[in-house]
Nucleic acid binder design. Structure first.
Length: 650
DNA sequence: CCTAGTGTTGCCGTT
DNA sequence: CAACGGCAACACTAG
């Protein structure tokens, strides 16, 4: 038996501390260990990744590489610029690898990729070792203990977690690392197809990920933003295990904060410093281990003298929610990221629905503009010019910094979907996917479903007001003044409703409320847009639409949703959201028989629509993988090529 | 089967 | 100022 030659494949576990997989690799006592990162075209071209998140990733890689070198000057993080699926067969041979070790993933794309890599390893006679360290519990085990069903509530997570037993304590960090072996690469690079390149809009120069296998200097170095052609990041939030652990230390040092944290009581309007930990991007990239976080908090709570908060509102509760979303994702696969064919997601005929590839049953990344006004609303929402300062401030902070407070995410998500624009949550999820530095597909998708009341949460009559809600924390409107500087001199009386300020005052405060915000700067006087609709009116329309859709009670996997005949169940007379048989295709696939069988006429006579109870027998069975075997063209949380392409042309 | 209570974080008016 | 109920009404869980 030759001494092991190990590849440790880093992915979203960019750390040395508490890594069960890394420990497993070291336990092999390898002759050589290569810590590598493969440059996956999925991330480069197909997932939406804004500059701010790119920077965070590169930060994590640089920091990790330095830490590796500190433990062994001969070693580092070796970046190899090829897709893992094509690289590994060649690499295994060239470096005479005996073992491949990595931390397991449960998202749909990750599983497909890893299954392929495992096959390749098997063919090459390479042993694969995986461990789970990305969540508190192994997501697959959590699902299993939840009767093989997706975890859809926090109580299910707690019950299933209790069956599993304790959350593992962090494993110790390595004190030393083996040498890497020879790093010569004599094979040729296979460049991945770069089309479609969803991230083209993130760049202002040529994309050069795949110049050569070991990079332009042949040293496997982490590339710079410039080298990747990426626009400069605008955020001040930086990545890396060193920074992440320091942030964690500072949180833990403050025992009162750590032990009494209650998420609903933290202010979404707080900036410098923010009210929450900002560890979420570190959770995503693995630069801080969630179990390290959990146990450091739990140990403070255990010995805390006062009254400590408890899940779900406590800090550890936040991690349980993360596990809940990972459990839902693990059980549902690709369907989790969309309404279509998702047994857990309510069907609501939103505006701007996703286009479906009828062959794969997956959303394509494009969407249908069923309503011109909704398209305008969507653009104004994304660009932070809705005319509602609270919404615009949040969206501008999101774009600039890549992070907004959780409750701020609630506010903008509710506003886009059930509590304002009545636009498909998948549109919003795509924007978050692009801009968030902490974007985690499972959590993002789950939270969008939550806020849009399509899954996890159902009390749609609890609707966030863009005027009243922020005032709970920020009567003065400091947050608005920071992110919507046009309004910085407005009196607090009008800061959340500037359109109500008298013209005289608007002039006095140096900003006129007019137009739609599209003119841009340049004029002599500053302007801030008028609100794009009357909120109260729009809220009522949304509530009516939600009530109706809930009453009809379809889920994403209902045959009527799959074939498009759902339209017959919706009454068209309501202006706005329901958009039944009227007009262009409202949602999902175009169904050929639209004209064949009576269109609007019959549905006027409203035979009792499918009762909500009927939906109870919806298919809750999971693991029927056969149907979901298809590859998605893009990242799990959908694409936005239509918008981006349009933007490019313009 | 039913009922009562609860659910991470709404808003508004009344007491 | 806090606490509460109405709003019009949902899903899930424990018993």
């Amino acid at each position: 038996m030759p001494q092991p030659r190990v590849i440790y494949w880093f992915r979203t576990d960019l750390r040395l501390h508490d890594s069960p997989a890394l420990k497993a690799a070291l336990d092999l006592k390898p002759e050589f260990m290569y810590p590598i990162w493969t440059w996956d075209p999925h991330y480069v071209y197909h997932a939406r990744v804004g500059s701010n998140r790119w920077q965070f990733l590169l930060d994590c890689q640089n920091d990790l590489s330095k830490s590796i070198t500190k433990l062994n000057p001969k070693s580092k993080l070796f970046l190899i610029r090829e897709a893992p699926q094509t690289l590994f067969p060649k690499l295994f041979k060239e470096w005479k690898i005996t073992h491949l070790v990595y931390e397991k993933d449960t998202d749909a794309y990750g599983r497909d990729r890893d299954n392929k890599v495992n096959e390749i390893a098997k063919e090459a006679g390479v042993e694969v070792i995986t461990r789970y360290g990305r969540t508190l519990y192994d997501s697959d085990e959590l699902v299993e203990k939840n009767n093989n069903k997706p975890t859809m509530s926090i109580s299910q997570v707690q019950a299933a977690g209790a069956k599993i037993g304790g959350i593992p304590r962090p494993v110790s960090s390595p004190k030393s690392l083996p040498d890497p072996g020879p790093t010569k690469l004599s094979f040729t690079q296979q460049r991945p197809a770069s089309s479609p390149d969803i991230n083209a809009i993130q760049r202002d120069a040529e994309e050069k990920s795949y110049t050569s296998l070991a990079g332009p200097n042949g040293d496997f170095a982490v590339p710079s933003m410039e080298e990747l052609g990426l626009k400069p990041a605008t955020t001040s939030h930086r990545g890396g295990e060193t920074i992440g652990l320091k942030m964690l230390d500072e949180i833990i040092e403050n025992e009162d904060y750590t032990a009494t944290f209650e998420k609903p009581k933290t202010a979404p309007t707080a900036f410098e410093p923010q009210a929450t930990t900002l560890l979420s991007p570190h959770m995503h990239f693995g630069s801080v281990s969630c179990r390290e976080f959990y146990w450091r908090v739990q140990d403070v709570v255990s010995k805390y003298k006062g009254k400590a908060s408890k899940p779900p509102v406590s800090l550890t509760g936040q991690l349980l929610f993360r596990d809940m979303y990972f459990g839902a994702q693990a059980a549902l696969g690709y369907a989790f990221g969309q309404t279509y064919n998702n047994p857990q997601c309510r069907f609501i005929p939103w505006h701007l629905p996703s286009e479906i590839d009828t062959k794969t049953g997956l959303i394509t990344g494009k969407y249908l503009v069923d309503n011109a006004e909704a398209e305008i609303h969507f653009k104004r929402w994304k660009e932070g010019r809705t005319g509602f300062p609270w919404i615009d401030a949040l969206m501008r902070q999101l774009k600039l910094e890549g992070w907004i407070h959780h409750l701020g995410r609630h506010a903008v998500a509710c506003f886009l979907t059930r509590g304002g624009c009545y636009i498909d949550w998948e549109r919003g999820a795509e924007v978050f996917e692009e801009w968030l530095i902490d974007h985690e597909a499972a959590c993002n998708i789950g939270n969008w479903q939550w806020l849009s009341c399509t899954a996890f949460f159902a009390q749609f009559f609890r609707c966030y007001s863009p005027v009243a809600f922020p005032q709970k924390w920020d009567k003065e409107g400091e947050f608005i003044r920071r992110y919507v500087p046009e309004l910085k001199d407005f009196d607090k009386k009008y800061i959340y409703e500037p359109w109500k300020a008298p013209i005289v005052d608007q002039k006095k405060w140096g900003c006129l409320v007019k137009g739609d915000g599209s003119e841009g700067a340049g004029g002599a006087t500053q302007t801030y847009p008028k609100p794009m609709f009357d909120f109260a009116t729009q809220r009522d329309i949304c509530l009516q639409g939600m009530k109706n859709a809930y009453h009809i009670g379809l889920y994403g996997n209902d045959p009527k949703v799959l074939d498009g005949t759902w339209r017959k169940l919706f009454d068209d007379h309501a202006e706005g959201p329901t958009e039944g048989t009227n007009g262009p295709p409202g949602a999902m696939v175009k169904h050929e028989d639209e004209n064949a069988e009576g269109n609007g006429a019959e549905s006027d006579n409203q035979e009792t629509p499918t009762a909500p109870k009927d939906s109870k027998k919806r298919n809750g069975k999971i693991g029927t993988k056969e149907k979901n075997e298809h590859k998605r063209q893009a990242s799990q949380s959908t694409l936005d090529s239509m918008v981006t392409r349009k933007k490019k042309k313009a």
